[in-house]
Each structure stands twice: as structure tokens, then as C-alpha cells.
Design a protein around this nucleic acid. Sequence first.
DNA 1: TGTACATCAGTGAACGCGCGTTCACTGATGTAC
DNA 2: TGTACATCAGTGAACGCGCGTTCACTGATGTAC
Lengths: 199, 199
Amino acid sequence: MSSATPRPPDRPYHHGNLRRALLDAALDVIARRGAAALSLRELAAAAGVSHGAPAHHFRDKAGLMTAVAAEGFDLLAGRLEAAREDADGDAFLAVGLAYVAFATEHAAHFQVMYDPSLYRPDDPAVTAGRERAGAQLYGAAGEHAPRAPSRETGLAGWCLMHGLATLWLSGNLPGPAGPGPNDGDAVALARRLALAAFR
Amino acid sequence: MSSATPRPPDRPYHHGNLRRALLDAALDVIARRGAAALSLRELAAAAGVSHGAPAHHFRDKAGLMTAVAAEGFDLLAGRLEAAREDADGDAFLAVGLAYVAFATEHAAHFQVMYDPSLYRPDDPAVTAGRERAGAQLYGAAGEHAPRAPSRETGLAGWCLMHGLATLWLSGNLPGPAGPGPNDGDAVALARRLALAAFR
DNA sequence: TGTACATCAGTGAACGCGCGTTCACTGATGTAC
DNA sequence: TGTACATCAGTGAACGCGCGTTCACTGATGTAC
């Protein structure tokens, strides 16, 4: 908080892993107060470093947000791939639930990923991650309903899960579904909604 | 744009309908550049008025955003009510499609309404509109599937439509579903997804 | 019809703030020989 | 083992900016009598 004590004498000149520390500080701020509240100077202060230091790792603010988005798509893709492999029966459902689990556990990543105005959406790392994740989202649909037009089934599943995750995180789900963003179990609700819709 | 010419002599001292003009300017900025880009000073300039004037109609920035949200919920509720009344058969589907139509036609309202960090969510006008809209979203579900647990069916329908609207507006739907936010027809896609999911 | 007065709407100067970005610099590290 | 040097990481002062908000004010309007 206090920028009057920029660097305590017990901390070495080199931070060690400033890049990671800045990303973590950013994720924390975004999760608690939203992406709009984020400032590079605050992140630098949180990492105990001068406010010019972030420019060394991320060129500018958009660079930092791009790194968050890229990491998010990478994490999501890994999560979806794992869910599909581990699925005992319904890979379509498993991938959908993994999507919601990711959104609630990585709320800050999720929020940034789906607001392209915050970062550079055509960054190579971002597009690669997005495509990896997309392959799982669409691929799983084909296994669910071989007779139905799988493209639309897959899209419907994604929209259902994305809508639930979004409404959940913004605290817009009413009553027993969870008065606040963190009450109850989003994944359990997702399972019930998927069964209600797709049967 | 230019604040060097604050008020041309042909314009009367009183604006006439400054409140409406400021709201419209805000909606325009939000739709084109996002809610984060909005500033009271810019709105005042767009309306051809000094930058202190907005405080007279909306106490502060949050007040203006609250007015946008309240208006949005009101418009949405009216839209859903009309859709339900006019529905020839499937009111559940009609309400869902009206929701998507509203989101694409009132993108700025929609964006603000579902980001409670932008305004005062417990404002009386906001909560009243939200409840009116919610009644339609939940009420229509019961008519769709009398045998299924209607609460979850309704929630699933809302999530599906909300997810589609959100992904559509942020330009995250891939390929033929619409490369940009404004290509194609979101409502037609919504109908196809609803049929794919709920049959 | 005319006058006094309360109320409302918009002005414009001023405030203090936090921000992103730049830049010459210095401390620390590691590599070549 | 020791020295020179390149490279990298972080510093801190400075810049210019646009913002929200406040406030005493003035112009315009309408109402009471």
C-alpha cells in the first residue's frame, strides 16, 4: 500500500520472479474489484517494486492483460482436455462441467478472456490457446449426439455453460441458486441444468 | 468534441431535454467503446453542455449508470411481457428469443445491466425492473414443461440465451455463427440452439 | 397587465488525484577469456 | 582464480493527461398576488 517504503533492505535488488508476482497481483485485484479497477502502479506496489518495473516484463497495460488472457485460455484448454480424457461416459457433459468449474475457480482469468477489449485478441499465444479450448468444446458435442446436428448441440452446450458461469460470477442468479457469487455449488447446478435441457 | 465552443449562440440556455440527451450519449459510447471508456465530461461535451451540468440530473457517475440499468430492466421486462402475450404456441421459446433480441438491439443497456459493479444494484427502480423481467423469465418455463421441474428448465433456458447473447456481443462466437458481433442473425441462431437443446 | 420572488438549469473556474509512459541511471548477474 | 565486459532487472524523477467533483454564480422560467 504505502509507496513511501519502496524496498525494504531485506529484499534483494532483483525480485526473483516479478513477472509471476505481477500476474498474481493482477488476478487478485481483478477477482476482487474487477478489471476496470486495475492499475499497473498498484500492482507494482503490491509486489514491492517501483512503478516503472512492470514495463520491463509486460510492455504496457495491454501487454499484461494479454498475458492473463493467454494463460487463461491455456489453463482452460488443459482443463477441458483432462475432463474429456477422464470422462467415463458422457464426455459432452464432462467438458461442460469442467468449463463451469474453470470459470468459478479462475474467475479473474475468465473475466478477462471474454472481454477482448481488455487485451490484444490477435496475440499468437492467445489465439493458440483459444483454438485449443475451442477444439474441446466443439469436439465433445459430436460424441454426445451422433444423430443430431452436432455443431448446434455443441454450441448450445457452450452457451448454456457460459451463461451459467457469467450469471453466477456476476451475482445475478436469484434466490436459492445462490444469492452471492460464492454460495452453493455452481458445478452441481450446471449438472442439473444440463440434464434439464438436454434430455 | 471541442470544448472551446461550449455553447453556440443559437442554442438556448436551457437544453430542453438534457437528461435524455446524456443518457443517449452514454448508450452510444458504451455500445461503441465499452462502459469503461465512459466519462461524464465527454457526455457533457457531446450534448453541447458544460461539464458540470450532468451532476444536476444524475448526482454522479454511478447515478447515471444506475439510470441506464433501470431503463434497461424496464425495457427488457416490457419486451418479455409482450413476447409472452403475443406467443402463439411456445411462450418459453418466444420469451427466450425476445431476450436475445433485446440484448442485440440494446447492447449498451444489456452490458450495463449485467455488470452490477457499474451502478447501484439496490436502487429501487433497478430492483423493480429486475423483478418484473425475472417474473417473465421464470414464469414462461412453467408453461413449457409441466412435467419437468420447471424451475431448472427456466433457469437453463435463461442461461442458454444469456450465454448466447454474451458471446455474440463480445464477438466470441467462431466462424459461421458470426465472425463479428453484428454479422448474421442472433435470434435465428437462438432458435436453432433452443431446438437443439430442448428437444 | 405588471411586479416580486422562488425555483430550477446550466456555467466555468478550480481542486486534487491517480494514472500510463518515458528515460537516463544504477545495481546485480553471468559469461568469455 | 581473476578480470573485463555485456546484459539484464529495477529505480525514481518527471511528463502530461483526463478525470470526478465542488461551488459560487448567473440566466431563464414560472408562479403568486
